[in-house]
Each structure stands twice: as C-alpha cells, then as structure tokens.
Design a protein around this nucleic acid. Structure first.
Length: 588
RNA sequence: GGGGCGGUAGUUCAGCGGCCUAGAAUGCCAGACUGUCGAUCUGGAUGUCGCGGGUUCGAAUCCCGUCCGCCCCGCCA
C-alpha cells in the first residue's frame, strides 16, 4: 500500500517514485498550487499539487481535502527550490509531486486542537484518547516504554530469569491496599480479588525452585488516585533464591543502567548511593530524598546550648531541638521571602522562623544582638558561600521536621527551578519492620508482612516490635519512590510471629495465608526480590508529570474511563447469575 | 473522608462590585490568492455560561446544594 514512511525521504530520494500513506496535517491552499503535509508516526512530508498536473475534477477533489483525512499519495520526490527549504523538519529539503492523490477516508474536524493538548480538560482528552495518541508525544512515550521493557526482558532473560505469568483472578487478603473484587458465578457468594502485586505467587515460585523469576505484572489497588497513582499499574516484578540484599541491589542497578542507557541515551553511574531510613528522615525529612536538591537539615541545638535567646533556651530546656538548613544561594532569598516563610510556618502551626543571613562579614538576623561571636563562628563552618542564609526552627523533633519540609518546598520553588534531565537514584535501607497504627491500635508492616526482620532483631518480637528493623530496601529516583523489595521470610515460625504481631489471629492467618505457611514448611529457600513501578519510571525518564502520559488508556482521578464509560451498570441477568443484589439507595 | 483550583462558542480563555441582545483567539464554513510550511486576506455561522434550587424587576455574575475534572492531605502491605 505504501513504499515509504513519511519522515524518511530526503535529497537522496530525488527523482524516485514513492507512495506515502497518512493523515493530512496542514493544508495551504494558494488558489493555484496547494500544499499539504502528510503525516504518519514517523514524520511528515510536504505534498505539492499544481493545477496543471491534474484534470479539473481531480484538482477540485484535492481542494476538498481537510485536516486529518486519510490519504494515499503516489508521486515523485523532488528537491525543493533553495529558497523554500524548510530547515525545521528533517524532510524539509524535499517534497513529493503527486500523480495521484487517493482519499482513503474522511474525518470530522477534531474535537480539540492538538497544539493546546496540555491545557485540554482530562475528560475530553481521555474520551478521544486515540486522537491524543495520533498527534502527540504520547506515541513517543508509549514507544519508549515498549523499548525500555524490551531491554529489561533482554537483560533479565540473558541472566537466566524465567518470565512467569501469575493469576489475575486470585484471593483477597487482608493488609495492604483495598482489593478490587470479582464475583464467582460458579461459587455463589464468593469473590476473587485482583492482585495488588504477585507477591505471594513469586515466593511460591521460589519454593518451587524456579530460582529466578520476573514478570511485567499488572497490579490493582482500589485506593484514591494521584498524578503518580492509577488503579491498575505495572510493576517489573523480580524474585530470586539464595541471595542477599546486595545481590538484588546490584542486579537492579545493572538492569536499570542497561535498559536506561540502551533506551534513553542517558549515562547512569552505578552503584547508587545508600542511605538509612533514619538518616533520610533526619537529613531530608522524608524517606524519599531528592538528591537534586542540595539541602540537608542540620541539628544545631548544640550551637545554641549557651544561648541568651529566651525562646530558644525555653525550647531546649523542654527537650526540644533546633534544626534548620543552609541556603548557599542566599541572595536569591529576599526579606519578603523570609516574611512569607515565617507566615507559612505560623499558619502551619509553628511558632516562627529563625534566620541568620551571612553576607561576607555582615550579619543580619532578628537575633543579631544575642549571637555570641563563637556562635557565629560555628554557624560559619556550616556554610559554603559568600552569601548564605541559615533558616531554622525550634521545637519538638517530629513537628519541626514537617515544618522544615514545608519551608524546603518554598525554597526549592524559589531557587532550584531547573531540574531537567538529571537522574539521581538512591537506595533507602534499614526500614523499621513495623509501625504502630494508633487508630487501629496495632502494629502494621511497614513494607509488607512477608518481609524478613534482621537476624539480630528476631528476639524483639515480644519486647520491642517497634524497634525491629527489616531487610527491606526502597529505590528512589529524584524524590519519587520507584520501587522496593526485601528479603522474605522463609521460616514458618517467623512468618507466624509477624502475623501475630500485626494482630492477625491464628485462625485468620491460617484462612488467609495458610497456603503460604504450608509452603514454608516444604523446604522454602532463602529468597527475596524487588518490584519497580514501570509507569513511574517511564514518567520520570521521559520527563512527564503524570503516569497518565505513559499509559495508553488511563483512568481519571475517580477511576473512570471517559472513553468506554467504565465502570458502568451491568445486565440484570449477569447480576442474577452472580447472586448479586445492588444496594445504592442510601448512598448520599 | 478533608483542603485547594477549575467548569462560559468545537477548543483555550476573558467577562463574575447584577443590564450581556455574552466577547477574544483559534478551529469551522464560504470567497480570494501559484511557493506555503502555525500560510495570508475578506466575510459568515456557532453558546442549556456544568446541573438544580433560591435572592432579585432582572443572575454567567450573589447565596445554597449537587455533579464533573485536576492538584494535594488522609489512604496507597
């Protein structure tokens, strides 16, 4: 049907007969000569129709062509006259002079202009997703995604991994996210759940001696959505036997380096740095540090130990701390900014902002009179530029971390605006195994309940579960969690201990996870793995702000699909067969 | 569950101290134009001002409710 693709023709093809197919892009009708571009996935090519080359009725048919009609053009490639070369496109040196222009299909005018695609309301974009795909960088995102997964598969298969599909219709389990459920017609009143991840299955594969498993796995979680969260999403899911944390971490690094470099033409330095959970919280205030931002929190309580500043002294005496950070581009923060930040701090429940500006030997600060020379000397050791500002807060540890995060956000928006094309990975390790949920009055697994505690903490199940550390690790890219994993529990007794600690009664544990506990009794090898969020990774690598831009048919924030109108009512008959009665009456 | 922003021609937006017989740009339609490439020029058509209720002589504009979209908190083992 076609001999070439739009976008591949250049001067070397001059004189050659070609056939192109595609969509009409932009018509420029000069009354006599008519120009239009023909576009496919690969590029655009200019077509020139002169009246003298066509019979009258044929030319008027060409005149009737509109944007987005599908055409097939048979013609000859010609070098453009020098003064009409268009340097903006790769095919700008040539054009095609057609002998025949065939209209394959017409099109209504598009419901939106693609040039405004960024601004168009999500519902409309999703309703006409195929048009969005047809003309935007979404196609390129999907292409990059496909190429990336191809490289991941290539890497893992070359390292002896076996790709295994695990069930989509599976068993609902407590803990973790809310499950999507599917009624079972053959077993009235019973339900399958869609998997939140293939977690338990991949562990069972290890018990099966499969040794090295991976899957590009669809996962489902019925929770509220965000720009980086869809109800269904894809994980690169990996599990291995006879390994420890370092094996998985280095495998993941090599895999990411390989796939990213092959797909995106970006150099990736490995190994990635590591940080413990505690240090991450202390230095960055979050367990997902963004290493592009050179701001670290510093505890400066000791500097003010002898202070005469009453507010600070009172707080220190009550056991509070003073913590803040240095901005080495101090000139970019004005007095107005400081006022704004102070206001934000007060509005968010803090008692006010402390600050010291050091500009050469000049010092500005609301506390200036009360600063000892040695205090200033100590503060000077923290800074590394001629013009710096130290911002700090005093109070209870947890509270001021939250406030510092708010301040940091303000400062980032003010100073570190250019963050394009830098990729900073970091591993976060040494997570607590459990955290206490005060609402449910019980401990919960920080990672998931199959995560192994550290050997030295096993004795703390009864004495100090909150103080136990896990063998889990998260990988963070530019401040966004892109994956996580752990060494799993492979001993039945420990698994039961964990279930007990998170408040799962023995019979419930048996009913929900009995099959796992049983498997652990049959020679379960030491094993562990990792899962990487493919949608998020691609989002970051192609520079999008939402994972919707990496998914062909995503859902809205309420989980609906404007294209198909899912979710929707089903036939009464279907409900009946599934023994389901719908009760939405008091929904209000 | 909570907070914020938004919903007005096909689209993106302006109008929101009540007078709008609702505008702009772009798209669309028609005409002109033989080297454009975001073509240009001239003319034209197009609105349940998200939906429901209220206040008012009069509501896109004020009030109440509701739906939808986006961002965030909670939630997301």
């Amino acid at each position: 049907m076609r001999t070439h693709r739009c976008g591949e023709l250049n001067r070397k093809y001059a004189g050659k007969k070609v056939i192109l197919c595609g969509w009409v892009n932009s018509i420029r009708d000069h009354g006599g000569v008519i120009f239009f571009d023909i576009r496919d996935r690969y590029g655009i090519t200019q077509i020139v129709c002169s009246p003298e080359n066509f019979k009258e009725d044929e030319f008027s048919r060409i005149k009737s062509i509109r944007d987005e009609w599908v055409v097939r053009v048979e013609g000859t490639v010609r070098e453009r006259p020098i003064d009409t070369i268009n340097p903006k496109t790769p095919t700008g040196e040539i054009e095609v002079v057609p002998e025949k222009v065939e209209i394959i299909n017409t099109s209504l005018p598009l419901p939106f202009e693609i040039s405004e695609i960024e601004k168009i309301e999500e519902t409309l974009k999703l309703k006409y997703r195929y048009l969005h795909i047809r003309k935007s960088r979404l196609t390129e995102n999907l292409n990059k995604r496909a190429l990336f997964t191809y490289r991941i598969r290539e890497f893992l298969i070359s390292e002896d991994f076996i790709e295994v599909e695990t069930p989509i219709l599976t068993k609902s389990t407590p803990e973790g996210a809310r499950d999507f459920i599917v009624p079972s017609r053959l077993n009235p009143g019973k339900f399958y759940a869609l998997p939140q991840s293939p977690q338990i299955f991949k562990q069972l594969l290890m018990v099966g001696g499969l040794d090295r498993y991976f899957q590009v796995a669809r996962c489902f979680r019925d929770e509220d959505l965000r720009a980086d969260r869809q109800p269904e999403f894809t994980q690169i899911d990996i599990e291995l036997s006879f390994i420890n944390e370092d094996d998985i971490i280095s495998l993941t690094e090599r895999m990411l380096k390989y796939a990213i470099e092959k797909t995106f033409n970006i150099q990736i330095e490995i190994p990635f740095p590591h940080i413990s959970y505690d240090e991450a919280i202390s230095k960055y205030g979050v367990d997902t540090p963004d290493l592009r931002i050179p701001i670290e929190y510093i505890d400066i309580t000791s500097i003010f130990q002898q202070t005469e500043i009453k507010i600070l002294r009172d707080i220190i005496e009550k056991g509070g701390i003073i913590k803040g950070f240095v901005i080495n581009k101090g000139e970019k923060i004005s007095l107005k900014d400081i006022e704004n930040i102070d206001r934000i701090v007060r509005e968010t429940g803090g008692s006010g902002l402390g600050w010291i500006r050091l500009k050469g030997d000049d010092i500005q600060s609301p506390f200036k009179k009360f600063l000892f020379p040695e205090t200033i000397q100590k503060i000077k050791t923290l800074i590394s530029s001629e013009n710096s500002i130290v911002l700090f807060l005093a109070g209870e540890q947890k509270k001021i971390t939250g406030l510092l995060n708010v301040i940091k956000k303000y400062v980032i928006e003010k100073i570190f605006t250019d963050r394009t094309n830098v990729f900073k990975f970091i591993w976060v390790t040494n997570f607590p195994l459990f955290e206490y949920n005060p609402e449910e009055k019980r401990f919960q697994a920080v990672h998931h309940p199959f995560t192994s505690p550290r050997e030295e903490d096993i004795s703390k199940f009864k004495t100090d579960p909150g103080g136990m550390r896990s063998r889990a690790y998260d990988i963070v890219l530019n401040g966004i969690e892109i994956g996580g994993g752990s060494i799993r529990i492979n001993k039945k007794e420990i698994q039961e201990e964990v279930f007990k600690t998170i408040g799962l009664k023995q019979e419930d544990a048996q009913e929900r996870f009995g099959f796992l506990l049983r498997a652990l009794e049959y020679g379960a090898p030491p094993h562990g793995g990792i899962a990487l969020g493919l949608d998020r990774l691609i989002m970051l690598l192609v520079g999008e702000e939402s994972i919707r831009e990496t998914i062909a048919f995503p859902k809205t924030q309420k989980g609906t699909c404007p294209l198909t109108d899912a979710p929707s009512d089903v036939e009464q008959q279907l409900l009946k067969e599934n023994r389901i009665k719908v009760d939405t009456e008091k929904l209000k």
